[in-house]
């Protein structure tokens, strides 16, 4: 068969790009108004103070401690969810048990439940009189209104990411490779560490990075479960919010810029991880 001839001029590929020019106008205009202008306003406000002053405000003791609480807690919780998320994904893909569909659906709850509700109920459940907090109180462990509370809120909101990135990879993974390793005499431990885990690693790390990114920016649930005390459990988002409440726009803009730059860095890392994962999948 010969190649189909374009019937009308609208068919030629050169023309295609210019169909619906207003679609392009809407896309570009919306992104400019919604994203580019606000980001430019933040960066220009932060830049207007000069590098010396910027550095001084960005590295104030209260800001440094807020970064530490935010980033260290977010990283630890993302890693915990990396371990449990992989385990849950494994159980959901490989095993069958009653209620499996329910547990699978419930994993998405943190995406659907507003963060204020999450913060409220976590603060109650993990307070000294709460269902879980009551069991820990006799041991002298306080969770709500401490840094542990921040960690619980971050665990909640970053839980789905690892599960949802690992699940599709596990589903597609052929069981015969494992069986081959097994029949060649590998122990279950060796099979897990050398055969199952390596192809899952890009997906796990992508999920951890996505969860970390989400936890770093989280505000609603943390502000409710934390006591927001500087140097103890004050996170960076709350510090920005408090600066704004005190009309200290300069400090808010500077700390906000630091957070924006960190987010961009994580986004870049996630893109690298996803590219790595795709290369893995193609092999």
């Amino acid at each position: 068969m010969s190649a189909p001839q374009p019937i009308s001029p609208t068919f030629s590929p050169q023309k295609r790009r210019w169909q619906f020019p207003w679609v392009w106008k809407i896309t570009v205009f919306y992104l400019l108004v919604m994203l580019a202008v606000p980001i430019a306003a933040l960066l220009s406000r932060a830049a207007s103070v000069g590098p010396g002053h910027f550095w001084q405000v960005a590295t104030r003791a209260i800001a440094l401690s807020a970064y530490e609480v935010t980033f260290v807690t977010a990283l630890i919780t993302a890693l915990i969810n990396g371990v449990f998320g992989t385990l849950i994904a494994w159980v959901l893909v490989r095993y069958s048990f009653p209620g499996k569909r329910f547990f699978d659906a419930v994993v998405d709850l943190p995406f659907a439940l507003p963060t204020a509700v999450a913060g409220l109920t976590l603060a109650t459940v993990y307070s000294e009189n709460g269902w879980i907090g009551r069991l820990l109180a006799p041991w002298g462990i306080k969770i709500a209104f401490t840094r542990w509370g921040v960690a619980v809120a971050m665990l909640f909101i970053s839980l789905p990411f690892v599960i949802r990135t690992v699940q599709p990879v596990l589903t597609e993974m052929e069981k015969d490779v494992e069986e081959a390793a097994w029949s060649l005499g590998a122990t279950p431990g060796q099979t897990f560490w050398r055969v199952i885990l390596p192809p899952l690693m890009p997906a796990i790390l992508t999920g951890v990075a996505l969860g970390f990114s989400r936890a770093v920016g989280e505000f609603g649930s943390v502000v409710i479960i934390s006591s927001n005390t500087p140097f103890r459990d004050l996170i960076a988002s709350v510090l920005v919010f408090q600066s704004l409440e005190q009309y200290d726009y300069e400090a808010a803009a500077i700390i906000g810029t630091v957070m924006l730059l960190v987010s961009l860095g994580i986004l870049f890392l996630i893109n690298l991880l996803q590219a790595w994962g795709q290369r893995y999948a193609q092999r």
Partner: peptide, 18 residues
């Protein structure tokens, strides 16, 4: 995708600055 990685508080701050 950017709005997903920006903290909502920072997003609000940007709008206040505009």
């Amino acid at each position: 995708d950017l709005p997903f990685s920006i903290s909502p508080v920072v997003a609000g701050l940007m709008l206040v600055l505009v």
